[in-house]
Design a protein around this nucleic acid. Structure first.
Length: 425
RNA sequence: GGAUGGGUGGCCGAGUGGUUGAAGGCGCACGCCUGGAAAGCGUGUGGGCAUGAAAGUGUCUCGCGAGUUCGAAUCUCGCCCCAUCCGCCA
């Protein structure tokens, strides 16, 4: 969510930001109305407050008269009239307010200057690590290896839940557990994150705080009969840990890592990259969340992205870091790096992490502030998060990149102690 | 699910219709004191919005919403949340 003052004072800047996202056709009309919506809101406030001031004054005089035992009937009538006027103005104010609020909820964040404008085709690879295998033709896709090895059971996942729900079995189940432990150990022991274990079910305020709601409510699973929702990412509960709180400057930057299952409807995505583990309704992920000051948040994004990269390096998986173009950058994000791993069996780069800085966009929604110095006014923090990493696609990558000619799969050294074996066969 | 008790400022905690935005305490800031610190003493200190160049002024805010009233933190109704007990249960 933006500061309304930005739309008031720098509408052109907002308009240009929407253009760079390729959203001007969609959001231009909304922006055209912004000025009049905001003007309405402010004139409603001004008139309302004038009446309120008048009534407050009358009311006080009534009190004094009555205390003195005098007759206050005339003043009381006048105050009542002011009250009636206030009721009307209040209605107008709340309508104008809601209109502005709704507009603010619809507008995505403004991407930073270094983010290329345009859509997905303008994404740029900023660096790469490792060497992708080129013998893809001889490599079986992960769903075949997984089935052969008896570690992934897609048919039974579909039977008990539906397409897009995975059953891991035997060493596959243990692989999930191993990945969780390895990632969390590295982030806590080496990168200094505080580990936390959060609810998978959150309320509406939390979903609104991180930007999922109101715009993307149809993308998440809701609990019938309750105003509760399954999280699409641990970003939601972890970022909302400090919703409506004021942090002390000494607490920043602050970093959390959390393992969680993630639930996504993925409606409308049918047919695209849906084989095997590539796009599923429920997957596991270790998430990193950081709270920072505006001064350091950009550096924090680099740091956070680096933390995610460490995991890929330990797993020996070749990857590239992609700076997303404005049009491909998520609604709440100001700048996003995707980490993509090459999966030679399917011949594709798989997005296994998305690391973003949200500037104050989420903090304003979730009302997360910090006090820059003792006695100073609170300011909004900057929030960041990144996957480190999403399991299902990592498992797919491991099964393909580390696949041996005989169909077995070598386990990366760093993972071996956690899995308790050096290969899957 | 049932019962009871609660939701007040950064935190704790008074306050049952009229200068109460809110006593007191903690914390924090500044000053005094001190060789320096602690303690002690003094002063100050919520957040949002509108307006204004600023100082300031106005307004809202005591979980949320509606109602009663000239006037609500305070009375009424509905809702939400928290705690405890009972029930159920991994």
């Amino acid at each position: 969510m933006h500061d309304i003052r930005l739309l008031r004072d720098q509408l052109d800047l907002v308009r240009d930001a929407m253009r760079r996202r390729g959203k001007l056709d969609e959001l231009g009309p909304l922006l055209d109305r912004a000025e009049s919506l905001e003007r309405d809101r402010r004139s409603a406030i001004t008139e309302l407050e004038a009446q309120q001031a008048r009534r407050n004054k009358l009311t006080q005089e009534v009190g004094q008269l009555r205390k003195a035992g005098a007759d206050a009937t005339a003043l009381m009538a006048e105050a009542r009239a002011a009250g009636d006027a206030i009721a009307v103005l209040e209605q107008r104010r709340s309508e104008a307010d809601a209109a502005v609020q709704q507009m603010l909820y619809e507008l995505p964040n403004i991407t930073l200057p270094e983010v290329p404008e345009g859509g997905e085709s303008a994404n740029t690879v900023v660096r790469a690590w490792g060497t992708p295998r080129e013998d893809g033709a001889s490599i079986k896709p992960h769903w075949e290896v997984g089935e052969t090895l008896g570690i992934i059971d897609l048919p039974r996942g579909a039977k008990i839940s539906g397409s897009g729900f995975i059953v891991y079995r035997g060493a596959g189940a243990r692989l999930v557990r191993a990945l969780m432990n390895m990632m969390l150990d590295i982030h806590t022991d080496e990168h200094g994150y505080e580990e936390c274990w959060v609810p998978l079910v959150v309320n509406r305020a939390s979903m609104t705080g991180t930007g999922q709601f109101p715009k993307f409510e149809e993308d998440v699973y809701a609990i019938t009969g309750e105003d509760l929702f399954l999280i699409p990412t641990a970003e939601v509960p972890v970022t909302n840990l400090y919703r409506d709180e004021i942090l002390e400057i000494g607490e920043l930057p602050k970093g959390f890592c959390a393992f969680s299952a993630c639930f996504r409807k993925e409606a409308g995505a049918a047919g695209k990259d849906t084989r095997g583990l590539l796009r599923v309704h429920e997957f596991d992920k270790v998430e990193l969340v950081r709270y920072a000051t505006p001064e350091t948040s950009l550096d924090e994004l680099e740091r956070l992205t680096g933390h995610s990269e460490v995991i890929l390096q330990r797993l020996g998986l070749p990857y590239r870091v992609v700076l997303l173009a404005a049009g491909d950058t998520g609604f709440s994000s100001a700048k996003t790096y995707d980490l993509e791993v090459f999966a030679p069996g399917v011949g594709k780069w798989l997005e296994v992490s998305s690391c973003s800085v949200f500037t104050d966009f989420q903090a304003r929604r979730a009302n997360i502030r910090y006090r820059p110095a003792p006695g100073e006014k609170p300011k909004f923090v900057h929030t960041l998060n990144g996957s480190a990493l999403a399991f299902s696609r990592i498992i797919a990558s491991i099964l393909e990149h580390w696949q041996q000619p005989d169909g077995s799969v070598r386990i990366p050294d760093a993972l071996q102690p956690y899995l308790g074996r050096a290969e899957l066969r």
